[in-house]
Each structure stands twice: as C-alpha cells, then as structure tokens.
Nucleic acid binder design. Structure first.
Length: 592
RNA sequence: GCGCCCGUAGCUCAGCCGGAUAGAGCGGUGGAUUUCUAAUCCACUGGUCGCAGGUUCGAACCCUGCCGGGCGCGCCA
C-alpha cells in the first residue's frame, strides 16, 4: 500500500472517530477527499484537502475542521506532525518507519510489486494494429501498435486475461488492387486507379519473377489470380525474402509488439462466418433489401442511419465482415472487447456498436481506443504521404536510421516507443522526420535508461569491488535509510501500484512513462546531491586511503543497497511495461 | 452543416473525476561536481492556461457560446 492510500484510510478512520464522539455531524461520512503530495505552497510529505472537501457539511469553517482533524491525526503511529495551511489543507509529515514499510513491500514482492493481486479476471480481447496488408507499416500504424501493446500489458497487470489480436484485411477491393498493381508493374503499365506503386510492389514483382513466375499470368477473367493475391498478402505480412522489405509481422516484432492471434477476414468468408452473421441478422429482421438490390443493416439506437452490408453487385462490405468478426470475438468467450483504432475511424464506432448489439452483445462490451493521428512535417512543412505515390516513410526506415545513428540495434525501438508513449493517446502528434532523426542520438529515452544503468552499476560495483550482495531486509538496515531524498524516493515507489492501476483504468500509457521519468529524475538528483554533501553510497576511489575500511560505515552502505535494489526493481518493472529496454550498462562512443 | 479530438512557456507536451504561488523536457543564461559511469545535477529565464459568459467560497479543470487547427460524415477498407 502506498503512503497516500495509508494516510487516506487513517484520515477516514479519524473522521469516523470524530463523528462518533459528536465533534462532527453524521453528514461528513463518505465524502470523497484527496491525499496527495503537497503542491509548491505546501510542506511536509503529504497533504489532504479533506477539511475543504467536507465543506458546508461539517457545519463550521474549513480551518476549524482542519484544526480538529490535525489534533486527532497527529497521534497516529505513522504521523510525525500535522499542520494546517492555506484555506484548510492539512500538511502531514510522516515518520521514517512509514517509508520503510514501502521499502519492505517492494523487496518482498520483487518483480510483481504493483500488480493487482486478483488473478483470473475478465477475459479481454485487445485488437490492435490491423493495418491493411497492402503496404508497409507507417508511423501512425506504429503508434497504434505501441499503444495497444502497452495497454494490453497494463490490463494484464490489472488482473485481466488478455489476448492480443491482429485482424488481417485480406479480402475485398484493396487486396485485389494490390494483386492488380503487381501485374501492372510486371507488365510495365501504370497501376490501376486506387492501386499501389510503392517500392514494395517492385519487391513483390521481382520475387514472383524469380520464384513463382506463373503467378504473374492473368486469370481467365483478365485480373489477378486468387493465388497471386493470396501470395502477395502473405509476403506483405512476413516480408519478401532477400528484398529490402521486412514485412509487417517482423517489423512489429522489431518494435517489441507481438500478437497472439491473427484473424483473416478472408478466412471469415471462406468459413461462412459472414454469411451466417447476415442470416442471423436477417432472421431478426435487421436487414432490409433496397430497390437496387443492395442490402442494409437496420440500425439500433447506437447509430443514426442504416448501413450497407451487401452492395448492388452482391459482394458484402467491410462492415458485414466486421459484424461477423466482432460477434465471433464474443463467441470465443471474451467478455470485453477493446479495439485500438486510428482517430480517423471514429465515425465507425457507432455502427460497430450497433452491429454488436444486433448480434446479441451489449454495445458497452465494445470499447474503442482512439489513437490520434501522427501528422508529418519535413523541414517545417506539412508533408502528405500516399501509398500510390510511393512517398512513404516507413517505421522500418526510421528504426534503421536511429539504430545506425546510435550504433546499437534496438535503440530505434526504444526511441520510437518513448516518442509515442510520451504523449497522451488522444493528443495529435506532429513529427518532423528530419528533426526526429537528428535528435535520435540524444533522445530523452537514453536519460531514462541511463538512470537504470547507474543503479545497476552501483549494485555491480558493490558485489565486485566490495563483495556486498543485496542484503535481506531488516528493520536495522532499513533504519539506515534516512536521507530526505531517500525517503522521497520511497514515497515515489509507494505510488507505483496506484500509477499502474490508474494507467490501466484510463488506458493511458503516458502515466507510467511519467512515473518512470520521475524516478529517473529523483534518483539522478539524489546521486549528485549526495556527492555534493561529500557522501556516497559506496566508498569512492579517493576515499580509499590507508585505513579506509575502519572509517567505512558498512551497515550504512548495506542499508542503501537495499534502497537501491528497491528502486531498481520498480524501475525495471516500469520500463518493462513500456517495452523499453532496461540496460544494465550504457556506454557512449567517444567519437561522436 | 453535423459529430469526435485538440488549443497551456519560444518549441514539444503534462496537469483537466474543481483546491494552496499552473509544471516537465528542449532552447537560452549562469553555476556545481570531476564521479559510486558527465548520456549527471542546481539555479535563473520564460505563461492574458484560444476568447467571452456562467456555476462555485474557489475554475486550466465543470456548463454554454464563439474563434482556430486536425479528423470523420462511402454501396472504400
């Protein structure tokens, strides 16, 4: 339990006591109030607005109520001192033992610290990325990928049983156009209207010519054969061997994003899921045939108009597949569905909910997480991309450039993930590709990682130079953790479970990143401050003159190692949630 | 026209289920330590929280209107 939660329940109990003794009226029971770190104007470790929150219900001015509470609260075992400030805030100073309790908890729980205890929760399906396999992953797809990945992990931490899924749109016009584009390129003609002309089309043509030339023959009807289309999609997903195109799946893996299930839209058709869903809707009177032969889905309350599920030409629409698909998700036993979509699809939410409702699922069971757009700039000018024109900036290209600039594989993944996660999911990102590439070498993600490497370096040096392993927790050792900045950091660690819970509830990875940055900042600041005070965690080289061992307060060091390890554990956990590597050492090339 | 998201420091963004003097990074200026890894630390600089009303003891935060930007409003996916 974090310190805030601890104090919150103390305050609540104190209120009850005051009510029981008649000092406060019955009406103050159950009024929500906050316990938070004090703002700039405050003092002490924690502050609460409880006296203000009670307001008129207390029947007397907030400052009087505050005084009453302060007196009652100051006898609590964790509390050192309580002060009334401003309009009626209570500033609470805690005893060191309260902080040491956090230390004990982190070390006791280790890597599982902060996770919800309840296991076996609701089954949730998180569908994300689901980019059309008609082109490589672009920057906006990558944002959805990273966001979905972290949200899925947060839900697991919160106790849900999560499945990650990618819906492959390998059916319909778009994929036909990809096949047609390949043929046209092969024949030296312009791609068809709405077709594709990117570098990857060249890669596909070259591959087919070398390995499967028969696929490049036109089908009897004159278009691309089903076999060609299927093969092209497969290559888009897994990459073209030997070509400069890795494919969607490997690129996702490189981003640290993995899916448990890939569902094929074409498969839904082949197995009759779509027709069965339409039949079910028809049986319930939710389909209506228009005069021109098209069929619309009759909407419920969620949407504002009927939507076409079967076109005049008899082919079903994407919406028809999606109804079948989402109904199937429920049929597979998922109680809650989360779809991570680009914000440009928001207009689709209403009809999807309506479709789900018609198939017998409560519309609230579908939650759509909208990831805002990534707009591109180049040298300060807005820059539009089009798959047809071939002016694509792929995420793969960005990963390559950053890996190369930093000189470490994986640097691009960390930088890209950081970049996306450092903003709210619903905030649009405007990215200047050139600037991003230039800044990659001193990306703020390295600050985050450096802090972790420093913690590791201390523990490593303790072991290798001083023969000190991380000690077991004991009240005696914990009692050596007394520096105000050390206690502040413990308070920070105590917030981690609440941070995770809040991030999961709000589906907002940024909360975790902000937490990790606070840890990094607080530790780096402490580290330097200690040095300024002439102190250090481990004896420094220059302190190791004759007889240094006699002067060394070994237990002080061991107590601090306990503290360092607690920070390291939490830090590692937070980076793990974000999918950013936690390196045990970092070195920088001198020749930059 | 209707709907969704956004408008906070020079730039990129937090804060927004109401609370004390609105924060961070980058930039700029000055300084510290020379290390238990300097990819470090500290201070200063910098803001009519888009505008106008309203609710409230109290509004960046809630409500209304307006202005500005993005995205949607397909028998495309």
């Amino acid at each position: 339990m974090g310190l805030e939660a601890m104090l919150h329940s103390r305050v609540a109990a104190t209120l009850d006591t005051l009510v029981a003794s008649g000092a406060l009226p019955e009406a103050v029971r159950g009024v929500p109030f906050k316990v938070e770190p004090p703002g700039r104007g405050g003092s002490g470790h924690l502050a609460t607005n409880v006296a203000l929150a009670l307001g008129k219900r207390a029947g007397r001015p907030p400052r009087d109520v505050a005084g009453l509470l302060a007196a009652a609260l100051s006898v609590a075992p964790e509390v050192e001192k309580v002060a009334v400030a401003g309009p009626g805030f209570l500033n609470v100073e805690l005893r060191p033992e309260a902080f040491h309790e956090v230390l004990a908890e982190v070390l006791r729980e280790g890597p599982t610290y902060g996770r919800a205890r309840a296991a076996g929760g609701q089954r949730v399906l998180v569908e994300f990325v689901s980019a059309n396999p008609t082109g490589p992953l672009l920057l906006s797809h990558a944002r959805g990928a990273v966001t979905g990945d972290v949200v899925a992990r947060l839900l697991e931490i919160a106790g849900y049983r999560v499945t990650r899924e990618y819906y492959v749109n390998d059916y319909g016009n778009q994929v036909r156009l990809l096949g047609e584009s390949v043929l046209c390129r092969h024949e030296g003609r312009e791609p068809p209207e709405g077709g594709y002309g990117g570098f990857y089309v060249d890669a596909l043509v070259a591959h087919f010519r070398a390995r499967a030339a028969h696929l490049l023959e036109r089908a009897p009807e004159g278009g691309a054969s089903d076999a060609l289309v299927r093969e092209a999609i497969a290559l888009m997903m897994v990459g073209v061997p030997g070509a400069d195109f890795a494919g969607i799946r490997p690129t996702l893996l490189r981003l640290g994003v993995e899916h448990d299930v890939f569902t094929s839209e074409d498969g839904l058709h082949r197995w009759g899921f779509v027709e069965r869903a339409l039949a079910q809707l028809d049986a319930q009177g939710r389909l209506q045939r228009l005069d021109d032969g098209a069929v619309v889905f009759v909407t419920g309350d969620e949407d504002d108009k009927n939507r076409v599920v079967r076109k005049r030409d008899g082919l079903t629409t994407y919406f028809a597949s999606d109804i079948a698909y989402h109904a199937d998700k429920l049929a597979r036993g998922f109680e809650h569905l989360i779809d991570v979509w680009g914000a440009d699809h928001h207009g689709y939410i209403a009809r999807m909910r309506s479709g789900l409702e018609a198939m017998g699922g409560a519309p609230e069971r579908l939650e759509v997480l909208l990831v805002q757009m990534v707009s591109l700039m180049r040298d300060g000018q807005p820059f539009r991309m089009g798959k047809r024109l071939g002016n694509l900036i792929t995420i793969e290209e960005v990963l390559d450039e950053i890996d190369e600039a930093v000189g470490r594989p994986g640097a691009g993944r960390d930088a890209v993930r950081y970049f996306y996660l450092a903003r709210r999911t619903d905030a649009q990102i405007s990215l200047d590709v050139e600037v991003a590439k230039k800044q990659s070498a001193n990306n703020p993600v390295f600050y985050l990682q450096y802090g972790y490497a420093r913690l590791c370096a201390i523990l490593r040096r303790a072991r290798e130079v001083f023969g000190l392993e991380i000690p077991a927790w004991s009240p005696q050792l914990a009692a050596r953790v007394v520096h105000p900045l050390e206690l502040d950091l413990l308070a920070e660690l105590g917030r981690y479970p609440a941070v995770l819970a809040e991030a999961a509830a709000e589906r907002e990875p940024l909360k975790v990143l902000t937490f990790a940055e606070r840890l990094a900042q607080a530790f780096q600041s402490y580290y330097t401050q200690l040095s300024v005070e002439g102190d250090s965690i481990l004896p420094r080289e220059r302190d190791r003159g004759p007889g240094w061992e006699a002067r060394w307060d070994r237990e002080q060091t061991r107590g601090r190692l306990l503290w360092v390890e607690a920070i390291r554990l939490t830090y590692e956990s937070a980076l793990g949630v974000l999918g950013i590597a936690a390196p045990e050492r970092m070195t920088r090339d001198e020749d930059e």
